[in-house]
Design a binder for these strands. Sequence first.
RNA 1: UCCUCGGUAGCUCAGUGGUAGAGCGUUCGACUGUUAAUCGAAAUGUCGUAGGUUCAAAUCCUACCCGGGGAGCCA
Length: 502
Amino acid sequence: MTEPFTRVAALPDHVGETVTLNGWLYNARGSKGLRFLELRDGSGLVQVVVNQEAVGEASWEAAASLTQESAFRVVGEVRADERQEGGVEVQAASVEVLALAEPYPITPKEHGVEFLMDRRHLWLRSRRQWAAMRVRNRIIMAIHGYFQGEGYVQMDAPVLTGNAVEGTSTLFELDYFDEPAYLTQSGQLHGEAMAMAHGKIYTFGPTFRAEKSKTRRHLTEFWMIEPEMAFYDLDMNMDVAEELLAAIVEAVTADCQPELAILERDVDALRASAQTPFPRLSYTEAVDLLTSDATQLMLDAEQEGLEDERHALEQERDQNRQAHGQAKKGEKRRIDAREIEINVRLDEIAEGLRNVPQWKASAAAFEWGADFGGSDETILTRHYTTPIIVHRYPAAVKAFYMKRDPEDDRLALGMDVLAPEGYGEIIGGGERATDLDFLRQQVEAHGLPESAFDWYFDLRRYGSVPHAGFGLGLERTVAWVCGLPHVRETAPFPRLLGRLHP
RNA sequence: UCCUCGGUAGCUCAGUGGUAGAGCGUUCGACUGUUAAUCGAAAUGUCGUAGGUUCAAAUCCUACCCGGGGAGCCA
């Protein structure tokens, strides 16, 4: 529709024209007779220049009265200006206050995690959070674009279920008219039913895990994309996962340059991630790599690097502290800010130095048959620059519905995609078991109630065919693409252990 | 559940037994091109809570509360 005002993002197309802008004050600077207002309207940021001599008394006082996050309207001329980030600024003809804001808690300075999470509803307005949500949006569109282009049908799995797919300890249970029900952990079983109706489908919806995990990779509520394809085997499944991730990275690097710049994402490293094919290691090969001399050498090098960095930082901090006494005010401020930076990094290094020896020991002692821990996955990915695919895990560590490897009965035809740069598992999936008797045995062996799976067994009774699929964790993918250290910044209102508000 | 780090001004943090500190933010003042503007001045504290040791505790000890990171589990 046609709007009666202009969006900041569209300003480069209106140079020389007079426009009306509606927005909020992101920050302000000024001197006598001249004020610079940073206007934020959701589509971007632009600097509005208010010259006392060029506007009326009312506009000048309106501009002077604006507090951070006050809503205001500006009418002014768009001018090209090389000094500005978007290449334009607006010379105000009039400024009108729409709503003065009370003192705003989130200043353009640094804040702690708890403080910001308690104000997530306001934090969303900040630049980095804004950029991350824009990238999330682009990723979502890229996922739909890929699947729709390949002929998949998007279908929704139920959120409320009676089935526990992978154990009951991590389910949110609720009362469904006097019957126990659960929030879904995965749409996969229903996805298989839908694939038998439509051939290729994907679900895109929320999933819930009541895991008491407090780590940078876990949410209790997260969005999962689960394609399921009839007549696909494990190799075809891996092809889909690889193409999907490459399409996501391609879309974001093509369309989200400004957002990635705000996030200070290393775009070259991200582009390298899109290079297909991704290395594919069997579980057995991955175990060999994990227990190899190459892994030990890599970790030794990492430890030395951390120790060198710690030494250099400690020297710098001592020198800064000596200089602090005679420093001028501005210099003191710089030294204080640097001290905080150094302390944060030293804490990270200390944690790394505690971790690396444990990682070394656990990697060297790893025995075939166990599942990979978080550190093992990190070590595997550090050997590569792109995501890697690990396939054919021991059946004992995988879900009951996985098909066995016909060449080795100990193995399941499962696969995980591990993202580079320490982001870890973003995809898990595999080829599904097709044989009814085998599935019955598996349900019993896993101690699951057979009655709850009767409808699922129907899929094997009525035209069972080879099929495969996987689940992609949206928030982990966003974290990786944005280079964010924690999944809590990848969802508008993340739900974590101990975090239900706002 | 376990391990580990932390809680000091509105915010981010220094301060490790001897008078409670800095920067930012806020308020006031200066400044016509600033980019987290700059410069000057002012106000701002239950040092997480409760006990204990001591002439003296933000600092040492104990318990508890809250938060960060990690293990297990997983996307």
